[in-house]
Amino acid sequence: MNTQAARAVTTSTGHRSRPRTWPVPAALVALSAIPLAAGALRLVQLAGGPTAIPADHRFAGFPGALVAHIVGAAVFAFLGAFQFLPRLRRRRWHRRAGRVVAVAGLVVAISALWLTLFYDPQPGSGAVLFVLRLVFAPAMAACLVLGFTAIRRRDIAAHRAWMMRTYAIGLAAGTQAFTEGIGEGIFGHGVLVADLSKGAGWVINLAVAEWLIRRPARRRANQGRRTHATA
């Protein structure tokens, strides 16, 4: 390690500093808080509790697909956030929790596809959102399968990339809470605006995921160029 690198990781007391990694899962949990809270209120409502959110006639009774989707999303969002902690990736917890996250993710994807195909469309939504859900639900399941096959062949980089894409798709509901408000504030109300605003949530999440996936390669390339220039 050169002198500059040593200074970068050593504090004034002579101890090496550790990068703070907890803000990442904290931010991911916070992003998923809005849809998870709405899902919890819906479960309370379906169980006969107080009506804290507007009733939805599509889910009269106690639909199993909706319950599976909400519970699976809660497990996937919460446990999945902590899979990004480097210190946990080097322990057995990461592997065991990863299996739970994978199962929960498949439940989310399959139940989302079921709700799209066999339930009435969401009020205020149109054909664009219907098609987007038919695209991203199978895409989430496909990314999970590819991530699982990658870790089976010990391809850590590919596993990390596919799981990040999976989490980006699954966490789109949190981003959509912001894109819908921004879309309506700029373009007004309308079915197409609402559909495209929700679609923007998936696009933004995947764009951020792809940037994070490619960042280590760009960093290594920049370091290589600096080393070559110094030599």
Rank of each mutant, 00 (worst) to 15 (best):
Thr11His: 14
Thr11Glu: 14
Ser12Tyr: 06
Ser12Pro: 00
Ser12Asn: 08
Thr13Pro: 05
Thr13Lys: 13
Thr13Asp: 09
Gly14Lys: 13
His15Tyr: 09
His15Thr: 08
His15Glu: 13
His15Val: 11
Arg16Tyr: 08
Arg16Thr: 08
Arg16Leu: 07
Arg16Glu: 08
Arg16Asp: 06
Ser17Val: 07
Ser17Gln: 09
Ser17Ala: 15
Ser17Thr: 12
Arg18Asp: 11
Arg18Asn: 07
Arg18Lys: 07
Arg18Gln: 15
Arg18His: 15
Pro19His: 04
Pro19Gly: 04
Pro19Cys: 05
Arg20Leu: 13
Thr21Lys: 06
Thr21Glu: 14
Trp22Asn: 11
Trp22Glu: 13
Val24Arg: 03
Val24Pro: 00
Val24His: 05
Val24Trp: 04
Pro25Asp: 12
Pro25Leu: 13
Ala26Ile: 13
Ala26Lys: 07
Ala27Ile: 14
Ala27Pro: 06
Ala27Phe: 10
Leu28His: 00
Leu28Cys: 04
Leu28Met: 10
Val29Gly: 01
Val29Asp: 04
Ala30Ser: 09
Ala30Thr: 15
Ala30Tyr: 09
Ala30Phe: 07
Ala30Pro: 01
Leu31Cys: 04
Leu31Pro: 00
Leu31Thr: 01
Leu31Ala: 03
Ser32Asp: 08
Ser32Trp: 00
Ser32Tyr: 01
Ser32Asn: 07
Ser32Gly: 10
Ala33His: 05
Ala33Phe: 07
Ile34His: 04
Ile34Phe: 08
Ile34Arg: 04
Ile34Asp: 05
Ile34Asn: 05
Pro35Asp: 14
Pro35Leu: 05
Pro35Lys: 01
Leu36Arg: 02
Leu36Glu: 03
Ala37Gly: 13
Ala37Pro: 06
Ala37Met: 14
Ala38His: 08
Ala38Phe: 07
Ala38Gln: 08
Ala38Pro: 00
Ala38Leu: 15
Gly39Phe: 02
Gly39Asn: 07
Ala40Pro: 01
Ala40Ser: 14
Ala40Lys: 01
Ala40Gln: 03
Ala40Asp: 05
Ala40Phe: 05
Ala40Trp: 03
Ala40Met: 07
Leu41Val: 04
Leu41Thr: 03
Leu41Gly: 00
Leu41Ala: 05
Leu41Asn: 00
Arg42Lys: 11
Arg42Pro: 01
Arg42His: 11
Leu43Val: 11
Leu43Gln: 06
Leu43Trp: 03
Val44Tyr: 02
Val44Gly: 02
Val44Thr: 06
Val44Pro: 00
Gln45Ala: 02
Gln45Thr: 02
Leu46Glu: 02
Leu46Pro: 00
Leu46His: 02
Leu46Tyr: 04
Ala47Glu: 09
Ala47Asp: 10
Ala47Gln: 07
Ala47Ile: 05
Ala47Leu: 11
Ala47Pro: 00
Gly48Asn: 06
